[in-house]
Write a protein that binds this DNA or RNA. Structure first.
Length: 831
RNA sequence: GGGCGAGUGGCGGAAUGGCAGACGCGCACGGUUCAGGUCCGUGUAUCCGUAAGGAUGUGGGGGUUCAACUCCCCCCUCGCCCACCA
């Protein structure tokens, strides 16, 4: 402060040469802030309105990287803004600390996953602290804490009790590299999301969450969050759930007691069904081929299909393959015999794994029919059915033909009538199908929450009693961690062998651990009462804080974490544990930080090290760079932005604060236009911050900086309006550049902390201008500008506009046809 | 193949249907300087013009409107997601 006073006294020149040492400022304030306890959420009796501001917690990989810096810069603005607006803000931090990297470090380098993980957490926590994120550190948690996973297990048991967690055998995605199964959501175009290895199928008995039971609600409840989530994420979730409405139709199969049911969205095309296809890898296919002369051919074909990877199998331009099974199904509407084929274009795990093929109206069926010379029959005529002979199916709308009593009906009418008639005859019914599959949650890995189930030969699957939770992980030294396709926990014999909780007989623990997405599906609830000993969370606290007002994180979680967290919340709602059905009211997905046009990666050699950037430009400049680069949801190309420019601005502000300092006010040098700029800026920045338009908000603060600079240079040092402007600038800067704002606040002669100040309030009387610039257009082209009072009369403005120089020149004697007057901003003269 | 989103100066990007290019980067020129990655000022879409001023201009083509970056239709390009889902 003494420096600032002295500088102000010795004149501007001395200050301008002053150097803003960002690192000194960083070193200076962290402890002060910690002592003031600035960001701790208020207690139960805090009268302020509450707001829960959440950033997606991170995997503790060690130091923060550029992606973290962007995400947390964005989330922090919201948290700080609402704190300054007088809200009781919960802005917690934690670590998603179970997962493969810890285990891989253990396997590769012989490190203890516990020690490795917690060392990384310490490093990352320090990184967050230096980055000055306004976290309430008192609520910090880690999903690998026994205190946390105890409740993950507890929640699993509640799901288990309700039948929402169950075990089944089925072909599952298998990553041959990580030696573990993967959820559908973790398979990206046939490859492992983590390691990019080509995923194969294995038939295994695994644990699932019955998320499909919630498919309808996951779709319907999107209405509650439509205003707060981007269309992009909502659409992705909708597509992922993939609800389709149609009918289930029963087909009698010759020589089989039970009919076979198929799902179709087009029951109106039933008369066009000319053959029948079952998934080659389904049980039904094997059954139909069994003991049949076609069995040999079927088995060969099944071998061929099994040999190709999912990646190849899913290539849509692949020619259709299949074998005739020598069996026939009867079309329920016309009694026709349809040959049954096995093919790999029909999926075993969607619908019933069997379809009626309507080649005229489905491209895939037509491709198949042409490959095997099967009949094609048009049943919906749209006037352009001749394309079928050249290989293009007619999928759309039209009138029914070749369909007996239904001829002439429209598609929609036919769907309704045929479905109703089938239902009457007991041969079918209206049905809904989902693309969404149940969530496979078992993982054959060590570093995760053990599944709290004991397998007993007499009692079956037995839940570990609640009071025996947590089922702790055995010491890593007692476990063989090497990937071998068997769960590592199974090798810890002392741990695995237990007495059955029900009958006391010899039993074994389930040796799989849970997918880490289970951990992250409820962490936002634990934050509300992180040390609550009697349950996963204190329902009263959750009622007070939930739902989350603003949730910030990467778009990569659009269908993984965000879908699972919504599912968990709904189950907990049904259990009566939470009040809200949707956990996140507003979702903000920030873009990525890329480098020179492409994703940063080691192999590309274009990694930008956050630590280096922080050393070169300081925390605040990096934050401002991230926020000023563009809209938060867009990617930032680090090659296109200028941290130096950001630092330049911050230095300008800092020097201005030094020049203005705590010097006494001198009323005689007042600068009224500056007041208008100040109050106009406050109004706009407030609106922009609330709308997450941070890049524009910063642009407005830069303009205010320029205005103050001009005023000071014009000799207004000491004017109350200058002090007011500088104070407003400094307090608003606090949400973007916490260190610099604090430093400026001190230079202005105030005690810490600027972060305890209220967000400035604008005075509408001061922010409205005395005059408005009115644009005069002739035929839509700007020809002149007039300074007019904001409440100018329409008729008067019209006359003024018609007689101004620019308009007269452009009209040049032509006849005026119309004059559009939008007082006070615009007049358009049409000639 | 389907769905969603986006195309604006040399660059990142501004603009409730009403002044296109705010703000910043870069660049140019000038000033200051005890030599620095951190200062001040001026200019900077394109074309014609010394200037005043004029013409053109928001991926391309049409349309609605007094007025279109903005709304509607067609096309092109790019990005993301899903991808044989019956």
């Amino acid at each position: 402060m003494t420096d600032a006073v002295e500088a102000a006294a010795t004149g501007a020149d001395a200050v301008r040469d002053d150097h803003y040492d960002v690192h000194a400022a960083e070193a200076k304030w962290l402890d002060v802030w910690a002592e003031l306890g600035l960001y701790r959420a208020g207690d139960d009796d805090d009268p302020r309105p509450r707001k829960y501001i959440l950033d997606m917690f991170s995997y503790p990989s060690g130091d923060l990287h550029m992606g973290h810096a962007e995400a947390f810069s964005i989330g922090d603005v919201g948290a700080r803004y609402w704190m300054m607006r007088g809200y009781n803000v919960l802005h917690p931090v934690g670590f998603d600390s179970f997962g493969l990297p810890a285990e891989n470090a253990a396997i590769k380098r012989g490190l203890d996953p516990v020690a490795w993980t917690y060392a990384n957490i310490a490093t990352q926590a320090e990184g967050y602290r230096k980055f000055a994120v306004s976290f309430d550190w008192s609520r910090r948690l880690a999903t690998s804490d026994p205190d946390y996973y105890r409740w993950t297990q507890w929640l699993f048991l509640r799901f288990f009790e309700r039948g929402l967690a169950y075990r089944k055998a089925s072909p599952v995605n298998w990553c041959p590299n990580d030696q573990t199964v993967l959820a559908n959501e973790q398979v990206i175009s046939g490859r492992c999301e983590r390691c990019d290895a080509v995923v194969t199928k294995r038939n295994l008995t695994q644990w699932y969450f019955r998320i499909t039971e919630y498919a309808d609600r996951l779709l319907d409840d999107m209405a509650q969050i439509e205003d707060g989530w981007s269309d992009q994420v909502l659409t992705m979730q909708r597509n992922w759930i993939g609800r389709s409405v149609g009918a289930e139709v029963d087909f009698v199969v010759e020589g089989r007691a039970e009919p076979v049911t198929v799902f179709t969205t087009r029951p109106d095309t039933l008369f066009g069904a000319t053959f029948f296809v079952v998934a080659v890898d389904s049980d039904l296919a094997a059954e139909l081929a069994a003991g049949n002369e076609s069995e040999a051919a079927y088995l060969v074909y099944r071998e061929q299909v099994a040999a190709i990877s999912d990646v190849e199998r899913q290539a849509t331009d692949r020619p259709k393959t299949g074998v005739f099974l020598g069996r026939y199904a009867i079309n329920p509407v016309n009694g026709e015999r349809m040959p049954i084929w096995a093919a790999d274009y029909v999926l075993a795990d969607y619908g019933t794994g069997a379809i009626m093929a309507v080649p005229a109206h489905d491209q895939r069926d037509l491709d198949f029919a042409r490959a095997f010379d099967l009949p094609v029959r048009v049943v919906v005529d749209n006037g352009e059915t001749e394309t079928i002979t050249s290989g293009t199916a007619v999928p759309g709308d039209g009138r029914l033909v070749n369909s007996g009593q239904y001829d002439g009906l429209s598609k929609d009418d036919a769907i309704e009538r045929i479905t109703a008639d089938l239902a009457k005859q007991g041969k079918g019914k209206k049905a809904v199908n989902f693309r969404l599959r149940d969530w496979l949650l078992s993982r054959q890995r060590y570093w995760g929450a053990p599944i709290p189930i004991v397998h007993c030969a007499t009692c079956g699957e037995v839940a570990v009693p609640d009071d025996e939770l947590p089922v702790r992980l055995p010491e890593s030294s007692t476990v063989d961690l090497a990937p071998k396709g068997v769960a590592p926990l199974a090798t810890a014999t002392d741990w695995v062998n237990v007495a059955c909780p029900t009958c006391g007989g010899a039993a074994t623990r389930d040796s799989d651990t849970m997918d880490t997405f289970v951990d992250s599906s409820w962490y936002f609830l634990r934050y509300c009462s992180p040390t609550y000993p009697d349950g996963p969370f204190d329902p009263a606290e959750v009622r007070r804080w939930m739902p989350v007002a603003e949730y910030t994180g990467g778009r990569e979680h659009a269908i993984l974490h965000l879908l699972y967290a919504r599912f968990f919340t709904k189950v907990l709602f049904d259990l009566g544990l939470v009040d809200c059905e949707e956990p996140f009211t507003r979702l903000y997905n920030q873009g990525m930080v890329i480098m020179a046009g492409s994703k940063m990666s080691k192999s590309r050699g274009n990694l930008v090290n956050l630590g280096d950037e922080l050393v070169a430009h300081g925390v605040d400049a990096v934050r401002v760079t991230m926020l000023f680069a563009g809209p938060p949801e867009e990617d930032i190309d680090w090659a296109d932005v200028s941290p130096t420019g950001a630092l330049k601005w911050l230095s300008r502000v800092w020097r201005l604060a030094g020049e203005i300092g705590p010097a006494p006010e001198i009323d005689e040098v007042e600068d009224p236009p500056l007041r208008r700029v100040t109050h106009g800026t406050i109004a706009e920045v407030t609106r922009l911050v609330e709308g997450h338009r941070f890049n524009v908000a910063i642009a407005r603060l830069m303009e205010l900086t320029n205005a103050i600079r001009k005023s000071v240079d014009a000799g207004h040092l000491g004017a109350p309006s200058v002090n007011e402007a500088m104070a407003a600038l400094t307090t608003m800067l606090a949400v973007f550049a916490p260190y610099t704002a604090e430093e400026c606040w001190e230079r202005l002669g105030h005690a810490p902390s600027v972060h305890q100040q209220s967000w400035p309030v604008h005075d509408p009387a001061l922010s409205t201008a005395q005059t408005v610039t009115c644009v005069v257009q002739v035929n839509g082209k700007v020809r002149d500008r007039l300074e007019v009072p904001p409440d100018v009369d329409e008729a008067a403005l019209r006359e003024l506009a018609l007689s101004c120089d620019g308009a007269e020149r452009a009209i040049a004697g032509a006849a005026v046809r119309t004059v559009v007057v939008r007082a006070p901003k615009l007049v358009n003269i049409v000639v």
